[in-house]
């Protein structure tokens, strides 16, 4: 009924179709670009999984390498990466969270706050290989830790510091003011409020950030190249002052150095797949936890 009427109207409000070439072209271009990253991720994942899946076995992840690393498993390599990551997090989470508390609860606007913010921002942009150089000059040489688990963990810790700070700060800032006010109104001091109200409320967010940080750390190669990573160690590390093998470095050395590059190809794929499962698994865990927290958040 309206269609027939509209014909007599002075303006054409009704058209069969608004054919908009420009919008159509650009939006479909954007759609294609939008999926490029995701497709790349899947292609690489598929490739590594396809070549690595038949290498993975119980023996592969529980046995040490044998025959100049051309056979056997990668048990000490996995343990090395886990140890590096765990020590790194033990070192850095307290410092990162405290810095976040400083930034969100204590720091007053001014020179010091600006300096801290600027430092965090800059640290976040420093190339990982430069952290490696720093670790070499400070932890390995100046502190005389040598190429060791400890030096590597400290180097990784410094690298991931800005990330831990910013995720923790975000979690702390998300605690509603009304919670803090309620606590103050009960007669709590500032520190009590932080310890009993702010931190418990922010804790899920802080943990999620730390899990995502752990994922980042465990995949890094450059910072541990000259601070911790060994080409080969006979077993799992016995102390903090021993060099360790690590998954990312293992892939690098097997694929580029040595005389058995082609023979060790399956082990390279297997190691790469193990690393990806570890890193992306933790990532996925963090992402799922985070989205759950967001949905659950009642305030």
């Amino acid at each position: 009924m309206q269609d027939t009427e509209s014909i007599h109207k002075p303006f054409m409000l009704v058209r069969k179709k608004r054919f908009n070439l420009k919008q159509g072209f650009f939006l479909s271009l954007i759609r294609m670009l939008g999926f490029a990253g995701a497709i790349t991720l899947f292609v690489i994942l598929f490739f590594v999984a396809y070549n690595g899946i038949h290498v993975l076995s119980w023996e592969f992840i529980t046995q040490p390498p044998v025959d100049a690393m051309t056979k056997g498993g990668i048990f000490p390599v996995i343990i090395g990466t886990v140890a590096l990551t765990v020590f790194c997090m033990i070192i850095i989470i307290p410092i990162g969270v405290t810095t976040a508390i400083f930034l969100s609860e204590y720091a007053k606007p001014g020179l010091i706050l600006n300096m801290v913010m600027m430092s965090i921002y800059t640290l976040a942009g420093v190339p990982s290989v430069v952290f490696g150089l720093f670790g070499l000059a400070v932890f390995v040489v100046a502190f005389n830790f040598g190429m060791s688990l400890l030096a590597g963990s400290l180097t990784l810790a410094i690298m991931v510091l800005p990330y831990i700070i910013s995720t923790s700060e975000e979690a702390i800032k998300a605690v509603p003011n009304s919670f803090k006010e309620a606590s103050f109104a009960c007669g709590a001091t500032k520190w009590q409020t932080i310890r009993k109200v702010v931190l418990p409320t922010a804790m899920p967010g802080i943990l999620t950030g730390s899990i995502l940080g752990t994922a980042k750390v465990s995949g890094e190669t450059a910072p541990i190249m000259f601070t911790a990573a060994a080409f080969f160690t006979p077993g799992v590390p016995q102390s903090l002052f021993e060099p360790v093998m690590a998954l990312p470095y293992h892939i690098y050395v097997l694929a580029t150095a040595g005389t058995h590059i082609e023979e060790t190809r399956p082990i390279q794929y297997g190691t790469a797949l193990t690393l990806i499962v570890l890193v992306l698994g933790m990532n996925l865990l963090g992402i799922i936890l985070r989205s759950r927290q967001r949905k659950k958040k009642a305030w």
């Binding site: 269609d3 109207k9 303006f11 409000l13 009704v14 058209r15 069969k16 608004r18």
Partner: peptide
């Protein structure tokens, strides 16, 4: 909703033109 007699929620209605007017 009829705008000058035209149902603006009809599937053929040009939303862009509607918003201009």
């Amino acid at each position: 909703v009829l705008f000058q007699g035209v149902d603006i929620y009809h599937k053929d209605t040009d939303v862009i033109e509607l918003r201009r007017r």
